[in-house]
Design a protein around this nucleic acid. Structure first.
Lengths: 345, 345
DNA sequence: TTGAAAGCGCTAACAA
DNA sequence: TTGTTAGCGCTTTCAA
């Protein structure tokens, strides 16, 4: 009941050596059967639990991995965490959540933890590596780090991703197949590769359908609600307003819909809206949002699985792992309202 | 650059003993000034970082705390986590997230971590203590555990809470002040004390205003979207349907609004809806949800602060800490549509 | 004010 | 198959 039962206590009680107890408990297979059982039973009876610090000190491993994100406050990461956690738990690893808030200081701190052995590996979801300070000359080779959902070029690190470009293309193709031709895009902010990929997918789909993209149809937001609202207003006040808007994430799509409602437009009657991410509540939104669903938990699980392979010396995949997305068709998209001049056609 | 600089390396380089280095770095005040500075500078230059396992093994402390919740997938907890994390970070503690999924096995496991020294303390947000197995005879005394947002009676543990009953009363009073008299409640599930408190607040407010509560006006949900939908339908098909519904959490409120829309009712035109929690996206919802906002980050911060006091031997507060809530009035509530028979009055 | 030495609990060479 | 022994890196008596 006290947590202070040590290996040596079990050894003394059973008249064996501590080493044998350690071996029996760690299933090293080097202990003869009757001994092994006796030891395990006694350990259970005494409620023995290993001292993790002592073990870690000795083995130089921590049996913990770090999952580092920009903002723990973003529910988006929760599903990823669940996947990571499930896979980690099965392999006997604990998961520590790391929150960078985009602070280079903190990003560096988590790499320190890795270096110092406080964690054996890292699932990184921030899109950047520490550059300054003690890592200014580059990171050590063969760092047990897996990048998920973000891309870090030339890092040589394993990546688990989705195909942002193809998914964006799917989203826009859905609008085209409904009959829309005037389709605008609210993109993500500029230095981010992900924004560019989704924008690229939008352009791909438009081009493939032979549709022109007026200069003003590409607006740049910041992934937040407010920019969705603002840019929707801007788009709808164009001389030739779009009949559909593809937003680079759900939050901007929500903003778009809110602004449309404020303008007296119905969604999807007057304006179709597609988002990207399928976040919590997209389904409950009014109208339910048509959006691209990412397999977040699977991404987490895959990232952890790759990380475990690395930790066990099995090596890492050469190419990025691309997980499939699905277009969730819900209530925010419909065929465009027929125009009068089309009637005569 | 290697994470392998040890105290003994610094000691050798400076011609002092490891003990002196340890003392200088831990600021024990027992090192003379010139030595102290030299050591600290050298440590910085060599980029020394202590081996946490070794330190923990020696000091029998882990400088980590556990934050245990029912479901990491619930964004609600993220803000609490942020508060806990901020306070912990300032005090040099790491935060480990624990996810129980309501599994007694896992709940027990986290208490084991506490007992085994893998964590020094715990912020518990699950509403129950492990009972079975190795804790069947009760938990050790003076466990460094703080309960946040939930209540565990007779545990003697410090609590950080909000006043659920008063907050629910505020929510209903808001509806009453708008002129509603037919106000129904969708409560949370039964064995939970929190559900009862919010239900109690609803009854308080109704009684204080002299309003009757028809038997069918109190429905019991499960905090999930679906039950909100289902129970809203049930309520609106009563011979005397309510003009306002107070849901015990936001998710059920969203369900309520979705069901109302499906029934062709406008919110707040035909039905006012109030939620509880002010979760992520309540503000972006259509219509924006009137709800009770809890100071989640502050709850987390307060819980961690109390925990730190306990860990430093400063003792715990006798009475629960109650943090204030605020009623966020948004677009989902309005005065009831005047009835024809009221016109003649 | 500093140093020497012991030891936290565990595992892994090495030996038997 | 089991035991002996050493040592992971740190902190903390105790002694100087």
């Amino acid at each position: 009941m006290n947590g202070r039962v040590k290996i040596i206590d079990i050894a003394a009680k059973l008249g064996v050596s501590p080493a044998t107890v350690s071996r029996a408990l760690s299933d090293s297979g080097l202990v003869a059967e009757p001994t092994r059982s006796r030891i395990r039973e006694e350990a259970a009876a005494l409620n023995y639990r290993p001292n993790v610090s002592a073990r870690n000190l000795r083995t130089r491993r921590s049996k913990a991995v770090l999952m580092v994100v920009r903002d723990v406050g973003n529910p988006f990461y929760l599903d990823v965490l669940k996947g990571v956690e499930a896979a980690a738990r099965e392999a006997g690893y604990a998961v520590l959540m790391g929150n960078t808030e985009n602070d280079p200081e903190r990003e560096t701190g988590f790499f320190d933890m890795l270096r110092d052995g406080q964690a054996d590996g890292m699932v990184l979801i921030t899109g950047q590596l520490p550059q300054a300070g003690r890592y200014s000359e580059g990171l050590p080779e063969n760092l047990p780090v897996v990048v998920a959902l973000e891309m870090i070029d030339k890092s040589g690190l394993p990546h688990i991703q989705i195909d942002n470009r193809a998914a964006a293309r799917d989203a826009v193709q859905h609008l085209i197949s409904l009959g829309h031709t005037r389709i605008a895009h609210i993109a993500g902010p500029l230095p981010e590769q992900m924004s560019e990929l989704r924008l690229g997918g939008y352009r791909d789909a438009m081009q493939a359908a032979g549709l022109a993209i007026p200069a003003d149809y590409e607006q740049r937001g910041d992934y937040l609600l407010g920019s969705g609202k603002r840019l929707c207003r801007a788009l709808m006040s164009l001389p030739q307003p779009p009949t559909a808007i593809f937003a680079a994430n759900d939050e901007m799509a929500f903003g778009t819909i809110a602004a449309a409602h404020e303008l007296g437009l119905s969604v999807p009657g007057d304006l179709s809206v597609v988002g990207f991410d399928d976040i919590y509540l997209s389904e409950a939104f009014q109208p339910p949002l048509t959006t691209i669903s990412q397999p977040r938990a699977e991404v987490g699980r895959a990232a952890m699985t790759v990380l475990l392979d690395i930790l066990e010396g099995k090596g890492a995949p050469e190419a990025p792992l691309i997980l499939p997305t699905t277009l969730q068709i819900r209530g925010s998209t419909a065929a465009p309202r027929p125009l009068v001049r089309l009637r005569s056609a």
